[in-house]
């Protein structure tokens, strides 16, 4: 039971970092991103490859975040004038493109077989208590991301991003470069997902393209929506909900007498889809865009 709790905490912290990244892009700056999983995957693969080449974990996290940020900046740079719906399509497709590249370019990460035996940071230090240590490391990273986002909300940049979300032309009219801020917000959010990916790879010690499907982008979307877009604390709560739904069902699986593994996995995604639809129906009045 305690093991399970530690696992849930770790997953929650990882999902929360990805979700906070999305909350920065979408909640604060109003940039719809249905492809957050692309940056998560970029981070996971970057860290996995680097740590396997004996690069220290801390450097691997930074590299994962940096590469994801560059990719995020690229997406933001080529789509600055896209309408919300087009941005939704392009980001969804972009993530699929990244997944296809990971699947096909075998020299990156062995294609569909993925990367295994990913080293874990400080392994051997804590012995049997290692999962607890890893959970604490992940929580520390989450705390850093959370505090950064909270500071940003109050900072001039945060106010500017919300102003861009509400009306771009106002920000442009006071002589600020809307594009530069959009790129900044998008790549910062991507970096958070990238860092989370580094923890994900180290935690599972195995990654494969099938773990980075569009569903993951939708899960973090649900986390941000549950927490009322824009609120960092709410996003945290949303991430708790999402990871309990996703990982908790693994725990109760042993107690359910019916259904195959595939069916239970499918069932929890159905619940996720239903939650998404219900949250939208309950909240759409507060989601109206200008």
């Amino acid at each position: 039971m305690l093991d399970f709790l530690i696992a849930i905490v770790t997953f929650t912290a990882i999902y929360a970092m990805v979700s906070l990244g999305l909350n920065l892009q979408w909640g604060q700056a109003g940039l719809v991103n249905l492809g957050q999983v692309a940056f998560f995957a970029t981070g996971a693969y970057t860290a996995a490859i680097l740590t396997r080449a004996n690069v220290p974990f801390l450097w691997a996290i930074l590299a994962a975040a940096a590469l994801a940020a560059v990719l995020g900046a690229l997406v933001a740079l080529i789509t600055p004038h896209l309408r919300e719906d087009y941005l939704a399509i392009v980001t969804l497709g972009f993530a699929e493109l990244v997944r296809l590249i990971l699947l096909n370019e075998k020299e990156i990460g062995n294609g569909p077989n993925g990367i295994n035996a990913i080293p874990q940071p400080l392994h051997g230090v804590a012995g049997a208590n290692y999962p607890l240590l890893f959970a604490l490391l992940t929580l520390a990273a989450l705390a850093a991301v959370f505090l950064f986002n909270e500071r940003l909300r109050g900072a001039p940049l945060g106010r500017l991003l919300r102003a861009i979300r509400d009306d771009e032309s106002v920000v442009a009219s006071i002589g600020k470069s809307v594009l530069a801020f959009k790129v900044e917000a998008f790549s910062l959010g991507a970096a958070m997902a990238g860092a989370a990916g580094a923890f994900y790879a180290a935690y599972l010690t195995f990654i494969a393209p099938e773990m980075f499907t569009a569903s993951v982008s939708i899960y973090v979307l649900v986390a941000v929506l549950i927490g009322k877009r824009g609120s960092n604390f709410g996003t945290l709560l949303g991430a708790v909900f999402v990871s309990i739904l996703l990982e908790g069902s693994d725990f109760i699986k042993d107690y359910i007498p019916f259904g195959t593994g595939v069916q239970i996995a499918a069932f929890r995604i159905i619940v996720m889809g239903a939650v998404l639809m219900l949250v939208v129906l309950a909240r759409y009045r507060t989601m109206v865009e200008s």
Binding site: V32, L34, E84, D85, A88, S215, I218, L221, L225, V262, Q263, A266, F267, I269, I270, M272, G273, A274, V275, L276, M277, V280, L281, Y284, R285, M287, V288, E289
Partner: peptide, 24 residues
């Protein structure tokens, strides 16, 4: 009348549901 985002999000939820009903 709620803008473009709510129906997009609803369709994503519906996508997950239909795909996994088939899978079940």
């Amino acid at each position: 009348r709620a803008g473009i985002l709510p129906p997009i999000l609803l369709s994503l939820g519906l996508m997950l549901i239909l795909q996994n009903v088939v899978r079940i």
